[in-house]
């Protein structure tokens, strides 16, 4: 299974949830599979998906699912220490770990070599760190939501992207639509 297959399987779980999605192929694939106002697509800024997700989880009560990648987490590796030391039980970090920089031509990442993001997360002090196969991801994600405890899921899958077009939505439209959605949930 590749990232696209995982996204396809978790769409029913993502429905009506607050989702922050990583830059490049992940956002483009999710946008094509299942667009909704509560999806926040990153159009730039490599590495900050988990940080945006954590900040969002800390100021409101709804569950936040950040869909990040191995390359992106490696770019902002210290994020795992910030997450561990500032736990928010409505926060789920789903790292789709295909051992590859998917959006730039599938160059290998160190997460597919000697480095284990699962062990890095544990060493940073994260609790509830779950490493699973691509096939198990939707089950683990559903479990994490119902546990109401901050969870880091590392989903191991094959590298590869599907051919989707870039998101041609305006960033301010994406942000406003997302914020308004949260305002409605709050009231």
């Amino acid at each position: 299974m590749i990232r696209y297959d995982i996204l396809k399987e978790i769409v029913p779980i993502l429905k009506d949830r607050l989702v922050v999605c990583n830059i490049g192929s992940p956002s483009q694939e999710l946008y094509q599979l299942f667009d909704q106002p509560s999806n926040f697509y990153m159009l730039g800024t490599m590495g900050l998906c988990s940080s945006i997700g954590l900040g969002l989880a800390q100021v409101q009560d709804q569950t936040v699912i950040a869909i990040d990648g191995d390359g992106s987490v490696l770019t902002n590796l210290a994020t795992l220490s910030t997450i561990a030391n500032n736990p928010a039980d409505n926060f789920i970090l789903l790292i789709i770990d295909n051992g590859s920089y998917g959006s730039t031509g599938d160059q290998p990442t160190y997460a597919g070599m000697a480095t284990s993001l699962t062990e890095v997360a544990l060493a940073c002090g994260c609790k509830n760190v779950v490493e699973c196969s691509a096939k198990e991801t939707s089950t683990e994600l559903a479990k994490a939501i119902s546990s109401e405890q901050m969870t880091i899921i590392i989903s191991k899958c094959q590298p590869g992207n599907v051919d989707v077009s870039v998101i041609d939505e305006d960033p301010v439209y994406i942000a406003n639509r997302f914020s308004n959605c949260i305002k409605e949930l709050r009231s």
Binding site: L48, S51, I52, L54, L56, Q60, T82, F178, S179, I182
Partner: peptide, 26 residues
């Protein structure tokens, strides 16, 4: 004020962006 130390300023800007999208000035 919710105070969260960050390791690097770009990480901090991600945190601030998330909080603002969630309805809190950062």
């Amino acid at each position: 004020i919710f105070h969260i130390p960050s390791n690097k300023e770009d990480e901090g800007m991600g945190l601030c962006a998330g909080a603002y999208l969630g309805g809190t000035r950062s």
